[in-house]
Simulated assay, not measured.
Amino acid sequence: MHLQNHDYDFAADALFLDFDNTLVDFAPLPESVVVPPDLITSLQYLQQAASGALAIVSGRPLTQIDHFLAPLRLPAAGVHGAERRSADGRMTQLPVPDIERLLMYLQPLAAQHAGLLLEVKRGALALHYRRAPHLEQICVQAMSEALAHEPGFALLRGSMVVEAKAADISKGDAIAAFMNEAPFAGRRPLFIGDDITDEAGFAWVQSPSAGGLGIKVGPGPSLARARIANPAAVRSMLAQVLEQQR
């Protein structure tokens, strides 16, 4: 179903937001995304309206999230939940597998093709082919072969990226951890995301025990029960809700 105004009450719900291709538009490089200034304003006031129950849940590290959303320092989960900052500022870092052997395996491929980018994270390694979409199958195959020799990782397909992440860490678990803490506890969780990395989050928030709603951005199959067209529509919705709250 397409998202309707009656599907959410951000003053009473707990809102969880992916970052790339959800709040901001897709960009040729991860570092070149553009954050509209009015998005910062919307997030700041929506967090206040929700009594603090708003968090970013992203595959990016927390340092990148903070960089793009400065001066905001929101509750956030980074690297799919491997690192998490609670609303009170407390940091949690989960144990993660070593990526060194994966990096050694994939570096020659990235060096061979100028359009490829290897992004090193804590316990995760992302191979971006945004500037070389014709190399998608080569990248997927190389990552699959690398992971065949490295236990403890799971392969994730994202928007022009294939990523190895800790197998026992997910965005669903990160959202569950937030929901056990103030100010999220006791609210209905809403999670807005765009690709397969967000499906674990959709599954958790829509479980009978959570009673929430997953909102898929853009086309494609998804567990999410609601859908919104694109990041511009997400930003417009957030701004509209802010006006209603005011």
Rank of each mutant, 00 (worst) to 15 (best):
L223D: 06
L103C: 13
G152P: 02
S42Q: 10
A229Q: 13
A200R: 07
D7R: 10
P231F: 00
G78K: 12
P133W: 10
A110R: 11
A174V: 01
V34R: 10
V96G: 03
E150F: 05
D194H: 02
A55I: 08
M104K: 12
L39P: 04
S42W: 09
V35I: 14
E145D: 12
V161M: 14
Y8G: 04
D20Q: 03
Q206M: 15
A185D: 07
G89H: 11
Q64D: 15
Y129M: 02
V140G: 12
G115N: 12
Q245F: 03
A148Y: 02
Q93V: 07
G211F: 06
H134C: 07
G81C: 04
F26A: 05
P108Y: 04
E136D: 09
P151R: 03
I65G: 12
A177M: 05
Q112R: 15
F191V: 10
A111Q: 15
S86P: 00
L23H: 03
E83W: 14
G89C: 09
A148L: 08
H6D: 15
N5Y: 00
V24W: 09
P219V: 12
V33E: 06
A146M: 05
R188V: 13
A239Y: 02
M160H: 13
E136F: 02
T92A: 13
Y129Q: 06
Q141G: 08
A226P: 02
I138E: 14
H80Y: 09
R187K: 15
E181M: 14
E119H: 14
Q93G: 03
D38T: 08
F178K: 07
G123Y: 03
G214W: 06
P208I: 09
D18S: 10
I40K: 08
G212K: 11
W204K: 03
H2A: 03
R101I: 09
A174F: 01
Q206P: 04
R90I: 10
M104R: 11
A177N: 05
V24G: 04
E243G: 00
P75S: 11
S209V: 14
M91A: 12
R101F: 05
S236T: 14
P108R: 04
Q93M: 12
V35L: 03
R130A: 08
A185Y: 13
V34E: 10
R131K: 05
L17Q: 08
